Lab assay of single mutants.
Amino acid sequence: MFKRLMMVALLVIAPLSAATAADQTNPYKLMDEAAQKTFDRLKNEQPQIRANPDYLRTIVDQELLPYVQVKYAGALVLGQYYKSATPAQREAYFAAFREYLKQAYGQALAMYHGQTYQIAPEQPLGDKTIVPIRVTIIDPNGRPPVRLDFQWRKNSQTGNWQAYDMIAEGVSMITTKQNEWGTLLRTKGIDGLTAQLKSISQQKITLEEKK
């Protein structure tokens, strides 16, 4: 169930391209415009997507990853294993993690069937560096609404905000991946996880038929 919630949630996290980005210092504006741009692209490019579902990787690479804190999220997933990894191991892992996100997020976007969304009203940021933004996803086919909290983090150097995690039903996506990959990290280390991520990233994206 959580895996499905995570995939549905990713439908609204794909941010804007650099040329049309919203105010990078306001995570609420980023979330709002990102959702609108993403849904528009999914709707307008269905012919290309249906002809070649792996085209979704391109959308992810162009529109999402430049505005997601990939390395920060990847380091959180590694936890204690990050500090013990060599620079070469980290570089290989982050490259594999990025390719994994292209496949995983692309597969999530393949679930698009006309969903709509509501974003919580903007709250004062103050001096906060981590801000959760509640998004409610509404399914046109009558499924119950899904309420999610996207975690946005302020870059201490640039002042810009980027998304790095999502919490559904009190469970963090980062925590879920830590639990899912924990045994592999304990037995085969970061190299074993890197190899698995490379394998997963090679899987073809498949479209979910409308139910």
Rank of each mutant, 00 (worst) to 15 (best):
M1G: 00
F2V: 07
F2S: 03
K3G: 01
K3H: 00
L5D: 01
V8C: 15
V8Q: 01
A9Y: 12
L10P: 01
L10Q: 00
L11V: 05
L11R: 01
V12P: 01
I13W: 14
A14S: 14
L16Q: 06
S17V: 13
A18G: 13
A21Y: 12
D23F: 11
D23E: 15
K29H: 12
L30A: 07
M31S: 01
E33W: 03
E33R: 04
Q36P: 15
K37L: 11
K37H: 10
K37A: 08
T38F: 09
R41N: 05
L42F: 12
Q46K: 06
Q46E: 05
Q48K: 10
Q48D: 11
I49M: 08
I49V: 15
R50W: 09
N52W: 06
N52C: 05
D54C: 08
Y55K: 13
Y55I: 10
L56Y: 08
T58C: 07
V60E: 02
V60W: 01
V60T: 14
D61G: 12
L64W: 06
L64R: 01
L65I: 14
V68E: 04
Q69K: 04
Q69D: 02
V70C: 14
V70T: 13
V70R: 05
A73F: 02
G74F: 00
A75K: 00
A75G: 06
L76D: 00
V77H: 15
V77F: 05
V77Y: 07
L78Y: 00
Q80N: 05
Q80T: 14
Y81K: 10
Y82P: 01
K83I: 06
P87K: 08
P87V: 09
P87C: 04
P87E: 08
A88V: 13
E91Y: 07
A92K: 12
Y93Q: 02
A96P: 12
E99I: 10
E99M: 14
L101T: 15
L101A: 15
L101Y: 07
K102D: 14
Q103Y: 07
A104K: 01
A104M: 08
Y105K: 01
G106F: 03
Q107I: 15
Q107W: 06
Q107K: 05
Q107M: 13
A108N: 06
L109F: 03
H113L: 02
G114W: 06
G114C: 06
T116I: 15
T116G: 15
T116A: 00
Q118V: 14
I119P: 08
I119Y: 13
A120N: 09
E122V: 10
P124V: 13
L125M: 10
L125Q: 06
G126Q: 11
G126N: 08
G126C: 11
K128Y: 07
T129N: 10
I130G: 03
V131W: 09
P132V: 01
I133Q: 01
I133K: 09
R134H: 01
T136N: 12
T136M: 10
I137R: 13
I138R: 15
G142P: 09
R143M: 03
R143N: 05
R143T: 04
V146D: 00
R147V: 02
R147Q: 02
L148E: 09
K154I: 11
K154H: 06
S156Y: 03
Q157F: 01
N160Y: 13
W161N: 06
Y164V: 02
I167T: 14
A168C: 01
A168L: 08
M173N: 01
T175W: 11
T176M: 03
Q178R: 09
N179H: 04
N179S: 04
N179W: 06
E180A: 01
E180H: 04
W181Q: 15
T183Q: 09
T183M: 08
L184M: 07
L184T: 09
R186S: 11
R186P: 00
R186V: 01
T187G: 11
K188G: 09
K188S: 12
G189A: 01
G189S: 07
D191H: 06
A195Y: 12
Q196T: 02
K198T: 11
S201R: 10
K204Y: 09
I205N: 15
E208V: 08
E209F: 09
E209S: 09
K211Q: 14
K211L: 08
